[in-house]
């Protein structure tokens, strides 16, 4: 017999399955926007949208990945709004695919990263935060949140192969940016060292 889903049922799902991911969503939102107010707005919008479509959510499935996908799409739409491009309707935001590259919001992010860079003293944090947003996103989702390649592919709406290549490129970019800093702490890229040995 199907269980009747009333307001109490949805409140329970919201409290037990959605709200525990608040800190992770806020951390992700902050590292996308570098601004506490914008991060608050994004997280709030994510939860309101999740609640509006809570009847589409199947209890016990991957709530975290679903919430991250809503937040990522809200982030992209925020920059579409900034550039006065037409918005998507709510339901499409949740289920549809987005263009892989969006030069309008990429160039907007460059400006914000420049401002943020001036505020940060820590070279490492700066190196991470100056990664292009597409590359920073996969690092955050994989290395910080522990999502699988498949989950990241669904959240970001790109093929798994693209997830792997973006992670590879993002890590290489970081290694280049950090090579001088890392040497001070005894880190060294063994691939480079090995090549050097083979060439001598």
């Amino acid at each position: 017999m199907a269980m009747k889903k009333d307001a109490t049922y949805y409140d329970k799902v919201f409290e037990e399955e959605f709200l525990p991911h608040l800190d992770a969503l806020y951390t992700f939102a902050f590292h996308l926007t570098y601004n506490e107010d914008d991060a608050n707005d994004l997280v709030q919008e994510t939860y309101l949208k999740a609640f509006r479509f809570i009847d589409k959510y199947v209890e016990g499935t991957n709530a975290k990945a679903w919430l991250f996908k809503i937040l990522k799409n809200a982030f992209i739409n925020q920059y579409r709004k900034q550039s006065k491009q037409p918005n998507r309707v709510d339901y499409e935001e949740i289920v549809s695919y987005h263009d892989e590259e969006d030069t309008t919001y990429s160039s907007y992010m460059d400006l914000r990263e420049e401002m943020f860079q001036q505020m940060m003293g820590d070279e490492v944090t700066t190196a991470i935060n100056t990664l292009p947003v597409d590359f920073r996103t996969v690092i955050l989702l994989c290395d910080v949140e522990g999502f699988t390649y498949e989950e990241i592919a669904k959240i970001v709406d790109i093929p798994i192969g693209t997830v792997r290549s973006r992670l590879h490129r993002a890590r290489n970019m970081l290694k280049e940016k950090l090579s001088e800093y890392a040497k001070k702490f005894g880190y060294q890229d063994k691939r480079i060292e090995k090549k050097d040995k083979q060439n001598h």
Binding site: A7, Y10, F14, L19, L22, D23, A24, Y26, T27, F30, H31, A39, N40, V43, Q44, Y47, L48, F51, R52, I54, D55, D122, V124, T125, I128, I139, L140, D143, V144, R171, L174, K175, A182, F185, Y187
Partner: peptide, 30 residues
């Protein structure tokens, strides 16, 4: 190297955000 994780600091939202979300979903249609 995966040092990187230690540099991406997790951040806590303010209690006001949780309160605001809960207030807004009370008046939002489920």
């Amino acid at each position: 190297f995966r040092f990187i994780k230690s540099k991406i600091h997790s951040r806590k939202p303010s209690p006001a955000l949780i309160k605001s979300i809960k207030e807004k979903i009370r008046i939002a249609p489920a």
